[in-house]
């Protein structure tokens, strides 16, 4: 019953985003014959790695009925601390070691969020708003505020690991780094958790109604705690990938991106009230945001209008279903 209900509404939002993406691509390929090409696609995929991992994390929180704005600060904290630690104490460690440290730091910071949310029962927006400034302030005050451009050699090595590499007909290069596999891995793992485990069912249940979830015997605290640890770990992963790929650990990076990520997720059909959200929608939402960011100019809209376009898309993407729901409610009453 619930499944049917959510399907009916969500497909609408996802199809809407899908249609906009296709329309955008058609328009763009009319304007520029080279638009529909492998380089455009790999650029899109490359740009979507960090944003995509963040979006999956943000989606999970939205599904559980919360909202997290601290994930960018978690990512910066984990990425910067890891890089600094490796450079000073273990510069020759392989990249997966760096990734593991960053993920563990991220999970730890996520656990702090989890304690405030699951044990103290504070509103998620307020907690993560607070920890956003705490984590960022902590890194910049006590860890460092300098840009690190000489990353450990193996982290740079990671950014050179290419999955696909080639030359286009017109001589331009394209490549897709292995980092993309991390996004795929995150999506598959999250899909498995959400769709194939009791834990995933519990996350949806809590998002639907905390009280009902508690009454059917779900340990709400433990599930919430898990969500924020998992989200922290994903943020740590996204952070270290971001640093490796841009070959610089910048403590001022990433923070400020959180609302765009949430916007992408919401565009993909996740709802702030919880209980709704799909991975397909999330990925579509991220794709659309990146398309608009990278290629708005191709369809003849100057890039100064970029944030107007993204804002309008968010309003349209959330406004249409909201309005339909409101009209349906008015008819029913």
């Amino acid at each position: 019953m619930k499944k049917l209900f959510s399907k009916e509404f969500l497909t609408r939002n996802e199809t809407l985003v899908g249609v906009v993406i296709i329309a955008f691509c058609i328009l763009a390929s009319f304007a520029d014959a080279n638009f529909m090409s492998i380089p455009t696609l790999t650029d899109l995929m490359r740009g979507g790695i960090v944003l995509g991992i963040f979006a999956v994390a943000a989606m999970l929180v939205l599904v559980s009925g919360g909202i997290d704005v601290s994930f960018t600060a978690v990512a910066v904290f984990a990425m910067y601390t890891t890089t600094l630690f490796l450079i000073n104490y273990a510069p020759d460690m392989p990249w997966y070691f760096a990734f593991a440290i960053s993920i563990i730091i991220g999970a730890g910071l996520g656990a702090i969020n989890g304690v405030f949310i699951a044990w103290f029962g504070l509103p998620t927006l307020i907690v993560t708003l607070g920890t956003l400034s705490i984590y960022r302030g902590f890194v910049l005050t006590f860890v460092g505020s300098k840009l690190i451009s000489n990353l450990p050699p193996d982290m740079r090595g990671f950014s050179r690991l290419m999955m696909v590499r080639g030359t286009n007909a017109d001589g331009s290069f394209y490549s897709l780094p292995w980092a993309f596999a991390a996004l795929v891995g995150v999506v598959v793992l999250t899909w498995f958790i959400l769709q194939r485990t009791m834990l995933g069912r519990a996350i949806f249940a809590i998002g639907g109604s905390v009280e009902s979830a508690r009454r059917i015997g779900i340990n709400v605290r433990a599930v919430q705690f898990f969500i924020y640890i998992y989200v922290g770990a994903l943020s740590g992963l996204a952070g270290i990938i971001h640093a490796s790929m841009s070959r610089v650990a910048n403590p001022f990076d990433l923070v400020g991106l959180e609302l765009s990520v949430i916007a992408a997720v919401v565009l993909g059909g996740a709802r702030l009230i919880g209980g709704h959200g799909t991975l397909t929608g999330t990925i579509l939402g991220v794709s659309l945001i990146i398309l608009v960011r990278n290629s708005l100019i191709v369809i003849g809209i100057p890039s100064t209008w970029q944030s107007v376009a993204i804002g309008a898309l968010i309003l349209l993407g959330t406004g249409l279903p909201a309005w339909q729901a409101k009209r349906a409610a008015a008819r029913a009453a």
């Binding site: 609302l259 107007v308 376009a309 804002g311 959330t318």
Partner: peptide, 12 residues
Amino acid sequence: LATLGSGLVFTG
């Protein structure tokens, strides 16, 4: 969401 989107529009 309304104000998140409109905030982007106004800034834009």
